[in-house]
Amino acid sequence: MIRPDAPVLLEIRDLHARVEDKAILKGVNLTIRAGEIHAVMGRNGSGKSTLSKVLAGHPAYTVTGGSVTYRGDNLLELDPEQRARIGVFLGFQYPVEIPGVSNLEFLRVATNARRTEQGHEELDTFAFEDLVRERLKVVQMDPAFLDRSVNEGFSGGEKKRNEILQMALLEPLVAILDETDSGLDIDALRIVAGGVNQLANADNATLLITHYQRLLDAITPDYVHVMAAGRILRTGGKELALELEQRGYDWVDQELAALAAEVA
């Protein structure tokens, strides 16, 4: 939902970042207001996933220029855990398996870290179980998954549902979902997208990173951005995603070549 007067949650200005010695982001600009759903599309290697990891604070990526403000504060100077606590959430493309750490305990510790930051009381084991059982419904997840180790032996669809469950518990203000649709069959996609739709409201915002139009059939974006060579090349409404689906990404190469020619 687009409301021009809604508060800006995330403001990315001329963001440059590299991994090891390779420059990946080369001047990303993006403004996200409360209530909005944004989709970033682009080919492999265009910088989409890097953008998500830089926003979450992955240590392998170095910001070399530009700024990111979250509700007016400099996001880039915060540790990853602090970003999560104040309401920035990254849904992983490949959720990490952590054998030996119980999913339930992990979810409880994470939820309490966020609650403490918000000035709420920590939940004890019983109160948390009540909460988590209610939130499981968002992604139609079997409570048996709570007793397993974090993501261990989960199918692709189960891992993604577990990501959305975490989102449902942490109630972020900005949720960045990195290729949440990858590896999902139609049913799992429907459930995961349904979860995202249920959680979206006028106070929060969602940034979907995806390859394919099909996720955007299930979650309607307010804005679609096409990313290439570390920048957002074009921004439009949901019709831009349909255009990409029909025309493919070849026109992106042509525009990039034209840009390069202009610079030269």
């Binding site: 604070g57 992955h58 540790d79 990853p80 855990e81 970003r83 990490v96 994470a110 942490l170």
Partner: peptide, 26 residues
């Protein structure tokens, strides 16, 4: 593992606590 630590941190769990959880799991 950096990826395991980052995953836990990205959910609001502090670096020390995350390292402790991973050691316990091991």
């Amino acid at each position: 593992q950096t990826d395991e630590l980052f995953y836990l941190q990205s959910r609001g769990i502090g670096a020390d606590q995350a390292a402790g959880l991973l050691q316990r799991a091991f």
